[in-house]
């Protein structure tokens, strides 16, 4: 009975929405709303990358590049070209999607470490442009982002951003769940396990990979836009290698091939550094240790490992 319930495609999004609502109702202060919002925004790019890395098995060490495109779209376009912020979000996702479409097909012919390095190089190239084109991006110091106005109201409180980001995240999870529960979703999971069998079953592997790459890029870009608008300031660090690694770590940590796993990963990666803020000096170190420990002792990630244990315990 419970199992059937969990297989329903609305179960996961509904559960996530419920948790977001409950947390939103009990959070005590702006400080906590700020952190929770950062979790939701990070969860968005983790959800996209999970489709690519967790389900389709294609690694990307450059997804922060797309986050950067999204973030700078809402920073640069309104400031320099008087484009309204909402339209700028759309422009950012469009650019990210088109870039992903163009580079995706050739790059995703590569496998494993070649793919890892090619995507890593892509991310670093984006960060380089953001750092060097000072006239446009403000260089390493970054630039201020003008606040978004919806229906004439300027949105700046952490509470508002919490609910906006939460809504976007839940919608993204619904879309991802729908996709997974379709022939495209089955195809992308199939090619993870055996490309040759997938192709022999009539799956156009290059097409499916490029579709999921574009979707993950769009999610990353959206999360970048949300972050920039929420934070009010962006620097090229948002597109940095370290940020790419953080998104990968969220997925690996929480669970490759589990949407809620990616979100648990986002919670850990955002909350942990805040909770251990006196450990700020050790951030890299802790991140690295965490990645190694999880992969050595819980290779499937936290959520799938615990789910399997729970299922076994019930049997």
């Amino acid at each position: 009975m419970m199992a059937r319930f969990r297989q329903n495609r609305w179960f996961e999004p509904a559960l996530i929405a419920l948790i977001i609502i409950i947390i939103g109702l009990v959070l005590p202060s702006t400080y906590y709303f700020r952190i929770a919002t950062l979790v939701l925004i990070a969860g968005l790019s983790a959800t996209g990358l999970n489709l690519l890395l967790g389900y389709a098995g294609q690694i990307s060490l450059g997804h922060a590049g797309f986050v950067g495109i999204g973030a700078y779209a809402v920073a640069v376009l309104p400031a320099k070209f008087a484009v309204p912020s909402l339209l700028a979000i759309f422009c950012g996702t469009l650019v990210s999607g088109v870039v992903a479409l163009i580079i995706g097909r050739p790059i995703l012919r590569l496998k494993d470490h070649f793919l890892a390095v090619a995507t890593l190089a892509f991310g670093i190239l984006i960060a380089m442009v953001l750092n060097n084109e000072q006239w446009l991006t403000g260089g390493p110091d970054g630039m201020a982002v003008s606040r978004i106005e919806l229906f004439g109201i300027r949105i700046r409180s952490a509470q508002s951003w919490y609910w906006i980001s939460g809504t976007v995240l839940v919608l993204a999870v619904v879309l991802a769940r729908n996709l997974l529960d379709s022939s495209t979703g089955r195809a992308l999971r199939a090619l993870h396990d055996s490309e040759v069998a997938a192709r022999s079953a009539g799956i156009d592997v290059a097409r499916i990979k490029s579709i999921v790459f574009v979707i993950s890029a769009v999610f990353a870009s959206l999360s970048g836009s949300l972050y920039a608008l929420f934070n009010g300031h962006v620097t090229p660090d948002i597109a940095s290698f370290l940020n790419s690694i953080e998104i990968v770590t969220m997925v690996v940590l929480g669970g490759m091939g589990s949407l809620s796993g990616g979100l648990v990963g986002a919670v850990i990666l955002v909350v942990l550094p805040q909770a251990l803020s006196f450990f700020h000096e050790y951030e890299h170190l802790l991140l690295g240790v965490l990645m190694i420990l999880i992969l050595v002792f819980m290779r499937a990630g936290i959520v799938p490992t615990l789910a399997a244990r729970w299922a076994r315990g019930r049997l």
Binding site: V174, N178, D181, S182, S183
Partner: peptide, 9 residues
């Protein structure tokens, strides 16, 4: 093969 339809379920 309509991905948009797939996304929207």
């Amino acid at each position: 093969r309509n991905v948009l339809a797939h996304l929207l379920g």
